[in-house]
Design a protein around this nucleic acid. Structure first.
Lengths: 194, 194
DNA sequence: CCTACCGATCGGTAGG
DNA sequence: CCTACCGATCGGTAGG
């Protein structure tokens, strides 16, 4: 079971770097000092490997939703931004697979991946919906606002690198500030973005 | 030369739907009622095809930057949003390749793709920088604000479908409204997002 | 633009 | 976990 985890770990790296189809099972095996065929003592298929990586990433992102503090929509959105960026900082390969490579799954497994992604999106939508209902966020179209927030968050895996100039904390602060302003929150206290 | 354009067109569709590596030359040929080998009468390699599609998409996006009205940063940003979403609406397959599949190019060609993408990003950054210098946009970190705007714009190709509920005009209005608020613009006149 | 072909590599399996 | 192998398919070329 431990060896299987190693395989999943390396698969996540390779799938995120080169893409699912550009990664061969023999290449994966080489990174693990195995022969190509030996992988199949631990896994059933290449596609199963992809789904497992997607599941692991989904667990992290869904974990962010569960850890949100109750109450204040502003605090919840800040925690969401911090959590999302935190997963990317800690799990960039898996996060990349979650955002992209899942598309290469075929119908039976594809549905599960879509469902996991949908759950995350619904969680984000709930945070925004709640803020609107409490009169804290002011947007004319909750669905569009959700897609906007998800867009801003999801694309970060393309450019954010934790070893770069901005620390996770700094970035999260500023990013949340920008999003809160977009959601119509008056700058309170910290003056997050201006 | 006309046949080559057909090939590029179909290649853009297939690369965007299945991904570059998951698309075989024989599959591409089949969509054009050709034999696999016949493609090479018109093109040099599969990779050349990918680069060409990236170039075509880049031309559209860079065209948006050139068509921006001079002057008012708010009008410029609105035109940028409208233009970007317009390219996605009209050229979804090519846009998708521009945002994703370019990564599968190898070093010599990869550099050109990166340069094209960089040019677009710099154009967006210039719009924001200008708005900040004119005192219209208020952000503490221009680079981060640019990445934020690019993230919100770039990810739209994942979910925006022109045949959906929101017209291009409605979406562009609301999206620009959200972005302008994020950039610290006081709701002027139209009250774009609230 | 076709036929016929090249060597290489693919995911996966049998049998140990 | 290895050796040895399977049929299928890959991108690309020769020669017409």
């Amino acid at each position: 079971m431990e060896r299987r985890d190693e395989i999943l770990h390396v698969a996540g790296h390779l799938f995120s770097q080169r893409g699912y189809h550009a990664t061969s099972m023999r290449e994966l095996a080489r990174h693990l000092n195995l022969q190509g065929g030996s992988l199949y003592a631990h896994i059933a298929s290449k596609e199963e490997l992809l789904l497992e990586v997607v599941r692991q990433a989904a667990a992290r992102f869904l974990g962010v939703l569960e850890a949100l503090p109750p109450g204040d929509p502003v605090a919840r959105l800040r925690a969401l931004v911090r959590g999302h960026l935190g997963v990317i900082a800690q799990e960039l390969p898996r996060a990349t697979v979650f955002f992209h490579e899942w598309k290469h799954l075929s119908p039976p497994l594809l549905e599960e991946a879509k469902a996991l992604r949908r759950r995350y999106e619904e969680g984000v939508q709930a945070v925004i919906q709640e803020g609107v209902e409490k009169g804290v966020f002011r947007v004319e179209n909750v669905r569009l606002a959700t897609l906007f927030v998800l867009s801003a968050l999801n694309w970060t895996y393309q450019w954010y690198r934790p070893e770069g100039a901005l620390s996770l904390e700094e970035l999260s602060e500023m990013y949340a500030g920008l999003l809160l302003r977009a959601l119509g929150v008056q700058e309170g206290g910290q003056d997050g973005a201006a």
